[in-house]
């Protein structure tokens, strides 16, 4: 398969100015991966920063992923073509290095499988974006996401 140009790779963004805090994305994520609505099972987290103002913690599929650098077995890898950071469950030994390495701790150890699990972009059609009723969570290209974060992050008190 042909590789996708770096700027054209798809990533997720979350716009706190449009998020209503309905938690549909978390329920959709948990349902897609675990067939349950338990919010603890979701691979993303919606947090209330101020009253009625929600921020999200989710995998942005970094250019230089810390989880990949920390993985001792090469299970955690960056897919060359799509740019998504994925985990190979057959190689993962469940050491938990990726959990500590990730700045937002998106990978976590599944208590049942005893290996690391993380956002897998739902294979190209992320359910969090598909079910988001207010359009806060969207799928955009890396290029657009960079412009978006330049606008949004200062609002959240992040110095660029």
């Amino acid at each position: 398969m042909e590789s996708i140009e770096h700027g054209e790779q798809l990533v997720l963004i979350h716009d706190p100015d449009r998020c209503t805090g309905c938690m549909t994305c978390m329920m959709a994520c948990a349902y897609k991966h675990y067939h349950t609505l338990d919010l603890d099972k979701a691979f993303r987290l919606i947090l209330e920063m101020n009253e009625g103002f929600f921020v999200a913690s989710y995998c942005v599929h970094c250019d230089y992923p810390a989880c990949v650098a920390a993985c001792p077995t090469g299970a955690m890898h960056k897919d060359e073509r799509s740019g998504w950071v994925l985990n190979n469950p057959l190689l993962c030994i469940g050491c938990g290095n990726c959990v500590y390495a990730c700045p937002v701790s998106n990978p976590r150890i599944d208590p049942f499988l005893k290996i690391s699990v993380k956002c897998d972009f739902c294979g190209g059609d992320p359910w969090c974006a598909k079910f988001c009723p207010s359009g806060a969570t969207r799928v955009v290209t890396r290029e657009e996401a960079r412009d978006f974060f330049k606008k949004v992050l200062p609002k959240l008190g992040v110095r660029l």
Partner: peptide, 14 residues
Amino acid sequence: HPLRKRFRSLPSSF
């Protein structure tokens, strides 16, 4: 089958 997912039926509200 170490990677098999646990079977869950539909959530009751569904």
